[in-house]
Nucleic acid binder design. Structure first.
Lengths: 342, 342
DNA sequence: ATTTTTTGCGCAAACGTTGCCGGGAACGTT
DNA sequence: AACGTTCCCGGCAACGTTTGCGCAAAAAAT
């Protein structure tokens, strides 16, 4: 039951491998009868071309590489679903790699993907990545490349992102409109594009409402296991105490909620809470959590489309555009207007 | 900046490709000086062997294929983390494929993985899969194979699973002990091993408490988008109404909770709820949800270890064992003992 | 000094496939 | 009848690597 090769067909049909190859690819220089013969036989013995050999020959592998920090993250798993949906009905396969937020593993994974001859790469940067010369090198090699979510502006490639600024601005504005004035921002490592954009949206909203920016209210997490509790502790010890928390990730939102519960702090009565997250359970939490959501699946779809376009229309170098998709604000109980506060 | 090949080294050093190849693999028939020369140069120009060519040659690809139904599922993403952890420090790469619960895509993905010459395969069956002849074929080919979580007993391969029977038994017993008698079971498609085992655990507990099994209380979902609501509706319309729900997946647990909220049913006062799920937010739900948890990461780790063992010790055909890992029961408010019920 | 052994390396085949070139047969053209 | 085309097909090389074999030179044994 070893894999059937073109040679087996050639031998069985008393033809040369080249003829078989051409017959299978429906070349014009093979007679219809021979083609029929070869194709029927190939069908019968269930022949599948060996993609490894094809890749070696230098042609396309019809595989897309996806490099993300963590698949155990709603945003990324949804984005990957979007990518797969598009790839699948365009005839591409998707190979997924995780960097686990490590620059080193990002390098290794990209290296792997490249040497496995993927036709293109969809990348969301690790939080450790500040130097993007490895991506520049890929680009210089002419490998189709699309960045999504966590991007790097200094790179001149196609990018697909959510409107992080807008989402953070909307969330912060909402908190301000419900009377909050000391709004803490629990966020992710500072190097990342999304961190900066969200921070900027947060600051812009504060400014518009004439609330001074206080850097003591901003805390950076590191994707550590139970860091949220410590961050919350730090923030709560300030005077005056924050009256709202705006968090930048699933993990931080849940960690924050846990920490507040543990301290018996009432939400939203004492502290208002809003998370930047695609948690499917947000509505069911206690209290239902307000969220800024990103169109994760759509981001994946768009990124995949951009990439495949790039792969298939390699000549017409379409200018590498950045696409920004709108975020949504879901107001729920955790940031409800509390009369006594206003 | 094209990839460096062994030929480039050979040319630069005025050696043959065979010598370079052997020098790099530290063969005894190459003089120490030549080896040093080659290795230094290879290091300097950052040579990386082409895995595609290696795979074509038939040697190992040092890649593991992982085929799962959905990565956007806590259990699987955690299991994959476990797999990757082991694979990574054993020098293997992991290539992930999703079947989206489709038998057809399972076939296609396995085919892809095989033709990409993975050294072995870690598979969790799709819910549509009842015929496993494709796996038997792999096995006959001698491809190392490990099934995890959703397995098929008729297959004589290594398997790593959670104690689904035990988990379901514990959950159901707990519900019975807290005075519930009409316990509904919302579960996943019936073909799957885990469905059957959980159902068996559920029935065993009922039997032990002398509660007759009522098949009207068991409902099978299909991974559809909003099916839970309908299933709940059906179950609630029965008389007497169920006084507890035991669900078999993340999705069903959340859907069930949503459906109960929507109908204003008090948990656990009116209906007790317990889910078979690894949701990280279970503690934070309203009310905190009781769960049966599986050691997902550990399952992944063990499965990967078994697979690598099989790959590397191919001769000593260790008898394909089934490993069963214990599940845990987390009792929270959603299945709290309510005095009036007892 | 001659034969044997060892050492160190190159040649060529192979993995599965495709592209380039070349060639025989049948046909049509002068 | 001689030549040019067209139509089909096979041979060979190549992708990057490993490997069995062979071969020359150096070292060792006689």
């Amino acid at each position: 039951m070893d894999p059937v090769t073109i040679k087996d067909i050639a031998r069985a049909l008393n033809l040369s491998t080249s003829t078989v190859s051409r017959a299978l690819r429906d070349s014009y220089e093979i007679s219809p009868e021979t083609k029929r013969l070869v194709m029927d036989y190939a069908e019968r013995i269930n022949y599948r071309p060996n993609p490894i050999a094809l890749s070696l020959k230098g042609s396309s592998s019809r595989a897309l590489g996806v490099v993300v920090p963590q698949i155990a993250n709603n945003f990324f798993s949804q984005a990957i679903n979007g990518i797969e949906a598009i790839a699948y009905n365009r005839g591409y396969h998707v190979i997924i790699f995780q960097t686990h937020e490590s620059y080193e593993r990002e390098l290794a994974n990209i290296q792997q993907a490249v040497s496995r001859r993927v036709d293109g790469l969809l990348i969301s940067l690790s939080s450790e990545t500040s130097d993007v010369s490895h991506l520049k090198a890929l680009q210089a090699q002419g490998l189709p490349l699309v960045l999504f979510d966590r991007v790097a502006d200094e790179l001149n490639v196609a990018q697909v992102v959510a409107d992080n600024f807008g989402g953070a601005y909307a969330a912060t504005s909402h908190l301000l409109q419900t009377g909050r004035r000391r709004i803490a921002h629990l966020t992710i490592p500072p190097y990342m594009s999304i961190t900066q954009e969200r921070l900027a949206g947060y600051r812009a909203a504060l400014e518009q409402y004439g609330v001074p920016y206080d850097e003591n209210l901003v805390r950076y997490g590191t994707f550590g296991p139970d860091e949220a509790d410590q961050l919350v502790e730090d923030l709560l010890s300030q005077t005056p105490r924050p009256d709202a928390f705006f968090t930048a990730s699933d993990r931080l939102a849940l960690g924050c909620l846990t920490a507040l519960h543990r301290r018996g702090i009432a939400i939203p009565d004492d502290i208002s809470l809003i998370g930047f997250t695609n948690l499917p359970a947000a509505e069911l939490l206690n209290p239902p959590m307000s969220t800024v959501t990103q169109p994760a699946q759509e981001i994946g779809e768009l990124a995949a489309e951009r990439l495949i376009e790039q792969i298939e229309r390699k000549h017409k170098a379409s200018p590498p555009s950045t696409t920004k998709l709108p975020t949504g604000l879901n107001v729920r109980d955790s940031s409800r207007l509390v009369k006594t506060v206003v």
